[in-house]
Design a protein around this nucleic acid. Sequence first.
DNA 1: ATTGGCACTCAGATTTGTCGAGTGCCAGGC
DNA 2: GCCTGGCACTCGACAAATCTGAGTGCCAAT
Lengths: 339, 339
Amino acid sequence: MSSEDRKLDVLRAIVEDYVSTNDPVGSKALSERHNLGVSPATIRNDMAVLEEEGYIAQPHTSAGRVPTDKGYRLFVDRLSAAKPLSAPERRAIQSFLEGAADLDDVLRRTVRLLAQLTHQMAVVQYPTLTRSAVRHLEVVDVGSHRLMLVLITDTGRVEQRVLELPVAVCDEDVTELRRTLNMHLQGRRLAEAPQALATMLDVVAPALQPVMTTIVAGLVETLVDQPEERVMTGGTANLTRSALDFPNSLHPVLQALEEQVVLLRLIGEVDSSSVLVRIGGENTHEGLHRTSVVSVGYGAGDTALGGLGVVGPTRMDYAGNMSAVRAVARYVGQMLAGS
Amino acid sequence: MSSEDRKLDVLRAIVEDYVSTNDPVGSKALSERHNLGVSPATIRNDMAVLEEEGYIAQPHTSAGRVPTDKGYRLFVDRLSAAKPLSAPERRAIQSFLEGAADLDDVLRRTVRLLAQLTHQMAVVQYPTLTRSAVRHLEVVDVGSHRLMLVLITDTGRVEQRVLELPVAVCDEDVTELRRTLNMHLQGRRLAEAPQALATMLDVVAPALQPVMTTIVAGLVETLVDQPEERVMTGGTANLTRSALDFPNSLHPVLQALEEQVVLLRLIGEVDSSSVLVRIGGENTHEGLHRTSVVSVGYGAGDTALGGLGVVGPTRMDYAGNMSAVRAVARYVGQMLAGS
DNA sequence: ATTGGCACTCAGATTTGTCGAGTGCCAGGC
DNA sequence: GCCTGGCACTCGACAAATCTGAGTGCCAAT
């Protein structure tokens, strides 16, 4: 084994020990718990180099070493072995998700499951509207010149929007609108909706033109221009599990994690192929500089419908969390494809 | 002023001081900051009595006094003056809620508003299904012998449910089912739905009988037997504001507040007429023994559609929170009535 | 290159001492 | 009879002093 290899072994050992004990780890403890085949003194030399290169740091003189963000990064990229879930765990995931009744239920179960598997806070994004297709668009008269539009997507997501109309409409008008809208939109992806909506203006009866114009404008605005992305969270209590991880206070962390926008940034920019890990300072948001995020996209087939992931202290079990997140995403994708 | 009256004044002063400073309050500080017109020694005597009666306690010998749950209770019931919101606050509430687009939006804004006004964690219950009326019931064929039912209530709540059918149905069948269901259910309260549903079985075409039976069973189960109550929370970060309030750790608190069931118990059992305050140990849930809950029902007119409230440390500004909760509930009621 | 030895550092725990806020009690005054 | 000032006492909070031990860097020997 080259000395370079051993240096990395030492880093791996430091990360593993620190993650499990939460104590800065010193050369002696290291040589006792891992059989690296060398004496503490040698390990000390390696550690000195690792520290110089910025992979580890000591909280204060004469304390053990702690991995830096850069150290965790190297660990995640090159040192952590994939950690397959146990068969019981896989079965648990499947059976836990299988009983779900509707989309909300699927997502509720998913966050709960993720939180339990990883002991971290879990986040799941609703299937993004732009990549969903229209299953049905319902038009309901709610009185006094107002219509409620209810969109149901192929992923089971239900979105509503109330529109003020320029004129009153009768029941037959509503039926006609519903028929026309569904004829042109059903099965279409929302991204293609604007064109379909444009052609629709021509085919509708002249008397309904103003109403249809309003509807089209409302739909484009709600669903295409500013599609409402939503997330669901769970297991927040896990952030308080070991209070030691957030010494100052976890107030800024919680505050950050309450903002939908922040959450979306965290888990929304993923594809379904590979797990994304953001470590400590790699997170752009100030309040999350002491946390790490493990996220991945889920989806039916190749297109990612949305993201899901977990948030926890940088001192987390990356290998385990990555496996759990990946596995759950796969099952969720299957669930949504099959419904 | 009788000595009995002064004793209560002392208690009031202790509660107020302790709430604002978070320090156990002693006789000297008390006599300086409130002009009770008596010397510290007299106050001490009063405090001794109050302690004997269980309204206050000392954390340790030779520290100031701290209100007990019983002390807070007396304060809330008899000593706290109503604390009307300022005009700007009222305007803020109104303008903040006015822009809401749909029910979800109303509730999102409500929790946010409550959290900001009270600096506590806020909870809002969705309008309960049993007391809502049907505005529209949509039936959508989602393929492979399955129908999706989408219920829209007069409060704007949208609930979905997927049903497995015994036989396949065609488009005309779906239209017919939709027509029949809406004819019989529209405008009806969900509590009365079962009778309406029963009569429906007779008027439908014989070929559709099995399908209709399934639908009726599904509706009754989802909406009447086990109506899904939901809550939305916000401002959880406020619980960490002063870490001093939850010395042990707020883990149990957060854990409790993640359970929908627990939250429902907290704010679900209210009427819209009066604000309910549960102090410390009065909460049945173990993890919430150090928290207080201020809740009230909101509703259009006399029937409470749901509850809303705030959760915080027992050391909270009861008067202010009660006013805020009451005021917000009134506006929410107006919002929902007007839509 | 690795190792054992050694002097050094320094955070954390423990001890000790001081300080002061707060208390209960009592005798005297209104 | 109630209030008040005085007084001795208690005890937590805080600070300084001390101790301990894990951990380090360096160096000479292998």
